[in-house]
Nucleic acid binder design. Sequence first.
DNA 1: CAGTGAGCGAGCTTCCGCTTGACTT
Length: 773
Amino acid sequence: MIENLVIVESPAKASTIEKFLGKDYLVKSSFGHIRDLEKKNLGIDLEKDYSPQYIVPDEKKKIVAELKKLAKDARTVWLASDEDREGEAIAWHLFEVLGLKKDNTKRIVFNEITKDAIQKAIKNPRSIDYNLVNAQQARRVLDRLVGFELSPILWKKVKPSLSAGRVQSVAVRLIVEREREIHAFKSTSSFKVNAHFLTDEKKTTVLAELEDKIKIREHTLAFLKKCQNAQFKVSDIVTKPSKKSPAPPFTTSTLQQEASRKLGFSVAQTMMLAQKLYEAGNITYMRTDSVNLSESAIGMAKTVILKEFGEKYSFPRQYKTKTKGAQEAHEAIRPTYLDKTDIAGATSEKKLYDLIWKRAVASQMSDAALEKTTVTIDISSTPEKFIASGEVMKFDGFLKVYIESTDDEHEENSEKLLPPMKIGQMLNLDYIKATERFTHHLPRYTEASLVKKLEELGIGRPSTYAPTISTIQQRGYVVKEDREGTLREYQEIILKNQQITEQKLKETTGAEKAKLFPSDIGMIVNDFLVQHFKDILDYNFTASVEKEFDEIAIGSVKWTKMIDKFYQPFHKKVTITTETSERSVGERILGKDPESGKPVMVRIGRFGPMAQIGESSDEDKPRFAGLLKGQSIDTISLEEVLDLFKLPRVIGLFENKEISASVGRFGPYLKHDSKFYSLKPGQDSPLTVNLERAIEIIQTKRIEQENKILKTFTEDPDLKILKGHWGAYLAYNKNNYKIPKTISAETITFQECQEIIKNGPSKAKPKRGKKSK
DNA sequence: CAGTGAGCGAGCTTCCGCTTGACTT
């Protein structure tokens, strides 16, 4: 007989709580939800008021059986799942599936894991909140209806196996629209004019910027001419105090952002490391939308700050969550023990822990006090003014520990220390430099900045940010890529020693690192969905249904009513779209082929993005060509398409044989002496690669091939021992054979090789990414 | 492996949110 059985959601949480509760309590974990809608079918009975058809999935059967057995023997069962919509539903599913009884089942909640909080919860049990449960059922059913009715339309109208959903489709939309904004963006340039002055002592320089940028070169030159014999006088000095406050401790989303900005971690990587830290007991729960810290954590932080930095640096504070739709079932992410500055583990874990520690500690520290000084400098020959600004830190406060990063890629930290100056003081001009600067488009999303945007829109939850980002990449809607920048020319005009000189310089622009780009399929699917299901793709759709879920949660709306109101018009739209909409292949007609006069178009074909000259109905067949990597249906020009039809292209002769370049099933390649040599997309293009470079590629590949060979045999020159990615293997007649571990690749004999060949080639790789049933 | 781009149609794909391992290569 067990006195008390407590069920929580996470096993790590279970073991912590067990310590607080003592031997009369057995604490177990449900490992999240224990049942869900049927996997294969819709799982919702549309004839019976949307009645959900729940099943316990196979992987949960074992844990359910165990909990059932324990619950039967327990005097009291405490359902201690999280205090939010999903947590309440978990408690209810447990109640139903385990066959619990009302009189000995108690529902308790706590949103911080401290002894006090848990004991207080035990003293204040309640019963299951069915309104909250119904809000969750509505959420679950709505997501299923949307996902399972939209996806099949895409299978019919675009491509099989695609998917759509309330969260993922909006995430893709953000990326598609940002990409189009970027393409529509026209950069303009203007001249930023910086003056470098010397103070009387000629020891320190003062950097000042002209108030307004100058649009064109001629005006810039005219301005510099005016400055040639001018005098420069300090006309005003304004000093203003300012302060900076620390950021709140981490939530899942802000942790993902900062780990990306400061440590370069992907969203998935951050979560995996945080999970490890959590399981080792080093940090609190890592999937949270709350910035709340427990009283004891605030106390611990104070002790640490007093000891490490002194009283001036301590400033305990409690933060309020501003995030849309936050459920706040947990604390913010923080070290479990704030006095622990270092942990055992891998370097990456240590780095992430350090970040979490700094952010949490800094959040409990004093504001930084700054003093901003703005100096206005008059020019005797013209009314324009130079402005020098500087910043002095009067007290570092939390900045001693932690500075939050931003996503701004073009940040210029011009705030510097200024030497002492007086109003009326004359300054000596060292030189003036006018540099041509360009406006830049909005940045492409990174994984982390996309998470930030989704959170702002109230779309998705801490537990789904990382999976959503991986889903939209897996479906091929979005790719994470680096892109090389292009060289751009800019002008610089300098006035020094009364002389004006001009020069042209070059800089790289538009380079991207680990950014999210939409694919052709991503754009086509997005356009299709936006066209036919505008309301669901609306950025405010989630926010508005969340409001309705809230109504259900307080009991003022019946959940099936809400679903019905949504589903009736939605389903009608699904039916109409299925019946009436065209197949969507993203076709764009670019113009006419100057040679034949036939129309030139691009679209998605059976094997991906392609270009076509002529209609399929024409007497002579249309001509086809695949698009190159990096080209997009959305943006490719007629010229670029016509270039594609120049392939295969003969480049020249090498060793008396022709080298030609083309694009095939596996990308661009060179062909020489009936051997193939892949071209790296982005590095060499089959349209432009020259003979010299082609020969270089062929010779490099030959050397690589040479190095791969570990051993050959005089008995049969076709039989080779090669060095592969996973070690040595045997190659013969275009088949590869695994060498048994009992035989060393170095001493293998010809006889042994023949033995291996007799046993047949190594099996083809099994299909990935699918769990067999 | 490297020329494709059509059509027929079996059987399959798919959502969002809670949670962790157990599996290859």
